[in-house]
Amino acid sequence: MARIDYFFSTISPFTYLAGNRLEEIAEAHGATVAYKPLDVTALYARTGGTPLPERHPSRQEYRLQDLRRRAALVGMPINLRPAHFPTNPAPSSYAIIAAQRSGGDVGPLVQAFLRAVWAEEKDIADDAVVRECLGNSGYDPTLADSGLLTGAETYSANLEEAVMRGVFGAPFYITEDDERFWGHDRLDDLEAHLDGKV
């Protein structure tokens, strides 16, 4: 069975705009998805990226226009200036790591956290929000309290793996044959690769 390693941040608007497209592609191609949440700010620092607050105003303005257009094109609601952004992505990432270890479909949980930030004005660093997202996605809300040390270690390891494998942004997809795709707008390219077209 093919595998797609999925590096992402739970506070990334472009990860949010990917929706469930990755999961649809994976299912259609009999592929599994390995979810690897990471600290995208730390990733930028390690790979030459510029954190959002440090970008030139013209780049920040363009980002907002691009997000508005992209959200409209995929039919997803988005608040361009959410009340709880930026926030600490670690608690939600630890919950995803714990959920993945427990089994089941992690995709809806990832999307629940992203939707909470970009469409629902919720703080995913808040324990109550983490529990709510877990419960609404079919997981035991107490997973928020389990394996915190393992979650922290895995979260850190995901960053190291990402740097080693050439990841520099989120979302980022890597196939078993080391084809790399950056951005939700490259999912069609990922699918074409899995189809043997590129």
Rank of each mutant, 00 (worst) to 15 (best):
L159I: 12
G151F: 04
T154R: 14
M1W: 00
S9H: 04
N158E: 12
Y94M: 11
E54P: 00
I25Y: 01
S102C: 08
A26V: 00
S102T: 10
A72P: 01
A83T: 13
D177K: 10
G49Q: 08
R165I: 02
R68L: 09
A45R: 15
R70Y: 11
T15F: 11
L17Q: 05
L64H: 11
A31P: 03
P13S: 07
A119W: 05
R180C: 10
Q65L: 12
E191M: 09
A34H: 11
P51K: 09
T175K: 04
Y155R: 09
R3Y: 01
D140M: 11
C133E: 03
N88K: 08
G107W: 05
T175I: 12
H184N: 12
N20F: 03
R186C: 07
A28R: 13
T150D: 14
D140W: 08
L80A: 01
A90M: 15
Y139A: 03
A71I: 11
T32M: 05
A28G: 12
E61D: 10
A99L: 07
A26I: 00
S92C: 06
M76L: 13
A170Y: 01
A71T: 08
W182R: 00
E54C: 03
Y6G: 02
D189K: 03
A71R: 06
L52W: 06
T50R: 05
R59S: 04
Q100P: 07
